[in-house]
Design a protein around this nucleic acid. Structure first.
Lengths: 178, 178
DNA sequence: TTCGTCATGTAATGGGTTACATGATTAC
DNA sequence: GTAATCATGTAACCCATTACATGACGAA
């Protein structure tokens, strides 16, 4: 259960009902470089979500004999509630690489408190990581070959850059609050 | 088969024989933020590799009654050969996010030609991606909310930054060649 | 009439994680 | 003696991909 895909579907359907094909396009457009989902995971996921009662499948367009229905998925009341719960969580699972991006993409639907909680959690998580990087580098610098070293240093800089970005976002959230 | 883990194990055992626990530590140290592997994937992978004849399992230390052996894994001749083949590939599969880092970490064991081929492939792959980002941004900029926009822009900058890094590496490989 | 894109799905497979189970060795 | 870390594994599960199968609709 859980999973990024489910959350993203909930978020997109929250804006408007969609059918699977369109859903997938928006998903991959929105998540850009973070992830790309295939139909092989999307449709089964939609079915599971229907069984949970979070969405409904409605046939759209003409459904004659020998015609296949175009299926439009729509959030139910329970689905909306479930999405709100997930949105408000802001716990450690929202700080991971794969999940953070998706949660961030739906920040417009959250309150400032949750936003700041997630942004700070993410930043702290990354700061731990960069500390680990630095520790590893000072400990083993001379034992690493140039390529491994270059990789570690580039990784460290990437993390530090994301931390700066998060700090800017946090600051702007705070001034918005005030 | 294939997979990042297998390649990384081959690469580490190429340097020296190791037992599983140590292997995992080095793996996660070397790959830093890229990935982390658990024993639940490492040990089964080692078994598969043994069945392929790429590595051997040797008992190390005292093995008395009621004592468990410490198992040291070692590359076979076929294993070395297989690793060399994988190293020399430099095809599209080496340009992906998950694989590139691992291949890069073993660049010291490759020749300059392969290195440049992989670096350029990776750079081209990322340039396609950043072009896609830019296209998406100009097409949908006004339809996106501020958060989604911020995410896309940060993603774009990350990709552009990695492209610059790769260009520097490529340039330095070329001067080394000359 | 054929090509591209829209559209919906399933089956097989892959490659990993978590939680569990067990035991040895080291440092305090 | 006990806690931390070293050490080896298995079983159940998860979440995704690939390849496949099918078919509608619009434009050239």
């Amino acid at each position: 259960m859980g999973g990024v895909l489910e959350f993203a579907v909930l978020g997109l359907l929250h804006e408007s009902p969609l059918h699977g094909y369109e859903l997938r396009k928006r998903l991959n457009l929105m998540l850009g470089h973070f992830r790309a989902f295939s139909y092989g995971s999307l449709y089964p996921c939609l079915n599971r979500m229907e069984q949970h009662g979070w969405i409904t499948k409605d046939a759209a367009g003409v459904v004659g004999p020998g015609r296949r229905a175009k299926v439009v998925y729509k959030l139910t009341a329970e689905g909306k509630e479930h999405f709100q719960e997930l949105l408000a969580e802001g716990g450690p699972s929202q700080w991971e690489d794969e999940t953070f991006g998706v949660h961030f993409a739906f920040f417009a639907q959250t309150d400032a408190h949750t936003r700041i909680r997630i942004l700070e959690g993410r930043r702290n998580r990354l700061e731990e990581r960069s500390a680990g990087f630095r520790a590893g580098l000072t400990r083993t610098r001379e034992k690493l070959d140039n390529y491994t070293l270059a990789l570690q240093e580039h990784g460290l800089e990437s993390v530090e850059r994301e931390v700066r970005w998060l700090n800017e976002l946090i600051a702007s959230e705070r001034t918005k609050q005030a």
